[in-house]
Design a protein around this nucleic acid. Sequence first.
RNA 1: GCCGCGGUCGCCUAGCCUGGCAUGGCGCCGGCCUGCUAAGCCGGUGGGGGUCUCCCGCGCGGGUUCAAAUCCCGCCCGCGGCGCCA
Length: 469
Amino acid sequence: MLSWSILELLRENPELLKEHVKRRLMDPVLIDEAKKIDDEWRKALTGLNKMRSQHNKLSRSLKEARDPSERQKLIRQARELAARIKSEEEKLYAIEGKREELLLALPNLVEDDVPIGDEEASIPIRFWGKPKVWKDHIDLFLEQTEKYGFSVEYDMLEDKPVGHADMLEHVLKLGDTLKAGEVAGSRFFYLFQDIIWLETALLAYAIDKMTGKGYALVMPPYMLRGNIVKRVIDLETFKDAIYKIENEDLYLIATAEHPLAALYAGEEIYDDELPLKLVGISPCFRKEAGAGNRDLKGIFRVHQFHKVEQFVYSLPEESRRIHEELIKNAEEIFQGLELPYRVIKIASGDLGACAIKKYDLETWMPAQGKFREMVSASNCTDWQAYRLKMRLIRRKGMKRSYVHTLNSTAIASTRAITAILENYQNKDGTITIPRVLKKYLEVYDTAPKDYIHPTRKIVSPKAKKKKTC
RNA sequence: GCCGCGGUCGCCUAGCCUGGCAUGGCGCCGGCCUGCUAAGCCGGUGGGGGUCUCCCGCGCGGGUUCAAAUCCCGCCCGCGGCGCCA
């Protein structure tokens, strides 16, 4: 029998499963309901199977029956039984639909070392780099470091750094969210010229890094069917993030994770093919419906951006080790960019239903005086695999179970740009280009190589008006 | 978008016309045999449940029938041709 960790626990140890749900600060009544309907379903199925068996016997005996009156009798019996089966089937399907709905609503388990609590309970586990801290932000900085028992070296800034949004739109004049707001809505943007070279270089750098580690480069579909999307993510994400194409059963992806997880939907994977390591590149479309008024300025939280994404299909016994590998890969990328960061172990209440454990990488943002999320790395264990029916077959004994899936950002374009705008700004209004990106810019004649300067050739109509008045 | 052909167990395939327990091969797993390898032989290899001489399963969903892989309708996907667009 194919075993899904959560269904196994639901049947064998529902109390323990409740403990996991409680860790997420969710109502464990979920488990009682799921258990009840699963029992009901199993009972109904057994009852129905007995009737079907009866009917099959009748039907088989009809094949041989020659005597016309005997045939009539058997047909009448079979007909009656068939009618009863049909009504029982309808009941079963109703239960089955409800069962499916409840099972798909169950969150993943929670790994034992995940801190319990809401967002506040998430804890930094390591720091890297020497953040540039503005003198008025020192207390704020210490609250994000020393409070957790870390002593992090920093460089003090005398002058107040320019925020990434102002840097982009008013100093460099290489972005325009005002005009984008008029023509598309808030959280959209126009980017111009050197910023796009920067984005191109960031994506190329991440791709180069990941393929160098043996990850296979994938360009996935940017839209997926509803039935796939709802199996890759939880309902919450679906409501907050997913755009739908009108009059079609197609949804814009919020990350390459979705189509990469769907790549093996319904497939069998043999143990000797694992781990299967992928690096996807795609645009990401997000409604940001739950974001309220947070990060309205600039391009930190937007409806579309590009992302290079790590995705791994793994053996169950290897997923924990690979999860560490994914966050280490992301760290290597940000170390290369020389952006100071910390890694956070996300608390149980803030995990997202798919993940058993999640790390975020947050870079220091000198103008905000905060560490902000750049990368999210999740171990989904068999949660996505069960929903997408991605089976693992072990050669030894041909035992069947489910693969584990993991995902992590490598680079998210707009976020990484904001981090560079705040960390690499100079007094003269220029941005130093991180050294590691230079080789990806050298091949282009018109791309900037060392610095991004405030543009002389203004494209943005809003910036033009400001200049003339 | 239109017309034609197709979709069967991990892969390939028979069965469809003419309704009555899904055939064979490859691969894989287990065993036997063998000095080693190769070959050979036997058994297994979709899913589910209360694990049994049970049920369901032939792209998906409906219909006809005592009974559907098989007949009918709708849809999805693939291939070929035509049209349209880049």
